Computed example of a mutant assay.
Amino acid sequence: MSGEENSFAEPWQAQAFALALALQDKGLVSPGEWAAALGRERARVGVAADGSDYYHGVVAALEALLAEKGLADHARLAELAAAWHRAARATPHGAPILLENDPVGQHG
Rank of each mutant, 00 (worst) to 15 (best):
Q13K: 09
E33K: 03
L80I: 11
A36T: 14
L66E: 01
L66G: 02
D25E: 15
A48R: 14
A90G: 10
S52D: 15
A14V: 01
F17C: 07
H93P: 08
L38T: 01
L80H: 12
S7G: 09
A20R: 03
V58G: 00
L65F: 08
F8P: 00
A78E: 14
G105R: 14
R40Y: 07
A22R: 12
Q106H: 13
V29S: 01
A64K: 02
A22F: 10
R76N: 09
A22Q: 15
D53L: 00
E33F: 01
A61I: 00
G3C: 04
S52W: 02
R86S: 15
E79A: 13
L66A: 12
A83T: 09
K26G: 10
K26F: 11
K26H: 15
W84Q: 02
A36F: 13
E5F: 07
D50W: 04
A83F: 06
L77Y: 00
E41K: 03
L19W: 08
H74D: 15
Y54D: 11
L65E: 01
D73A: 07
A90M: 07
F8V: 03
G105I: 03
A67T: 13
E100T: 06
N6G: 15
L98N: 14
P11C: 06
A72G: 07
V47Y: 07
E41H: 00
D73F: 05
G108H: 13
A36P: 06
A75F: 02
M1K: 10
